[in-house]
Amino acid sequence: MRNLIRNLRTARGLSQAELAAAMEVSRQTINAIETERYTPSLPLAIALARYFDSTVEEVFRVHEES
C-alpha cells in the first residue's frame, strides 16, 4: 500500500512524533506506515486523511499490477 503520509507530514513541518501524538499512536507506527511496512486500519487511515484535509483515496494507493 503506497501512501503520501511522509510528503504530507513534511509539507506541514511536522515530526513523526507530533503526527503520532495527534493520531494517538506511537512514533514507530507512523514510521512503519511511511515506510510502507504497515498498512493502517481503516479508522486510522480515515483519521490520517482527515488530518491532512484529504481523502483516503488520495493519501493511500493500492499497488496495482500492470
Partner: peptide
Amino acid sequence: SDTIRLLRGADDDERALT
C-alpha cells in the same frame, strides 16, 4: 529497544496489537 517496548506493552496502538 523497540522490541522491549513492545514486550512491556509501552506502544499501545493498533500496530502493537497486530
